[in-house]
């Protein structure tokens, strides 16, 4: 365990030194919150509505953070280490690449939680957002969302032959999901066709789940979203693992 913490500590330092990851995980979502908060404030989303703008934006931006770590930071680290044969060097030690990868997943998980915590704190302080869901249901929703995004990133790394193709896959899916899932633009503004496209994207279900739970829904009311995110995690992880086992690491 101590060894794992030393590796994780080192990976955390390297994460923070990477401006791109640091900015998009911790700073960019906060800027979005301040921007949209500055425009709308925490006012009802339409006249007479119970939901307020920032109350639905914060859970959506939380999913955006999981997208940054799961679809950009983690897969690009994995593919970079593989392409530069850094994992090969770790394989030539008693630790092996698997422990390094686990530490990288752990660090990205921690950074996701930090990014979301900053959002929640800013949302509470600046706009007095309401989190009506129980702590447990928020945690479970968050875990399902993180697992789905991370497993998709893992799959893209397994499919991509190099950093460039992994980059392309991750950016493509991240930005499509970012704009269509409701994570940045409220999906109520979308026409029906776009809503149908959005419905096949896992991030859409993560946003719906988080917004519902933040609004006070019980987990049971979102079994469809939980099932889709769970299946996304299982399929992407299993497929990624099979593809990974066939890769040449030397």
């Amino acid at each position: 365990m101590n060894q794992f913490m030393v590796i994780s500590n080192m990976e955390l330092r390297l994460y923070v030194r990477n401006f791109f990851s640091f900015f998009f995980t911790l700073v960019f979502p906060l800027l979005m919150l301040l921007l949209f908060g500055g425009i709308y404030g925490n006012t009802p989303i339409y006249e007479g509505a119970d939901s307020k703008m920032m109350d639905i934006c914060v859970p959506a931006y939380s999913v955006m953070v999981t997208g940054v770590t799961g679809l950009m930071s983690l897969p690009l680290t994995l593919s970079d280490y593989k392409e530069k044969k850094i994992y090969k060097r770790f394989d030539a030690t008693p630790v092996g690449k698997i422990n390094i990868m686990l530490a990288q997943v752990f660090v990205n998980f921690i950074m996701t939680l930090i990014g979301i915590s900053i959002l929640l704190a800013a949302g509470k302080l600046l706009y007095n957002i309401q989190i009506n869901g129980t702590f447990l249901s928020v945690c479970i929703s968050l875990l399902f969302s993180i697992a789905a995004m991370f497993s998709m990133g893992f799959l893209f790394t397994a499919i991509g032959q190099d950093v460039r193709s992994t980059n392309l896959l991750c950016y493509l899916f991240y930005f499509i999901m970012l704009f269509l899932s409701g994570a940045t633009i409220p999906d109520m503004l979308f026409p029906e066709t776009m809503k149908k496209i959005a419905d096949i994207l896992p991030m859409t279900h993560a946003v719906d789940l988080m917004q519902g739970i933040f609004a006070g829904d019980a987990l049971g009311m979102h079994s469809k979203e939980l099932l889709i995110l769970g299946m996304t995690t299982a399929i992407c992880t299993a497929t990624g693992a099979v593809l990974y086992s066939k890769k040449d690491w030397t």
């Binding site: 080192m10 990477n18 030539a92």
Partner: peptide, 13 residues
């Protein structure tokens, strides 16, 4: 202990 022909290390370490 091994010294590989080509070894790379984590970026910015």
């Amino acid at each position: 202990g091994v010294q590989l022909q080509e070894a790379e290390y984590p970026p910015k370490i």
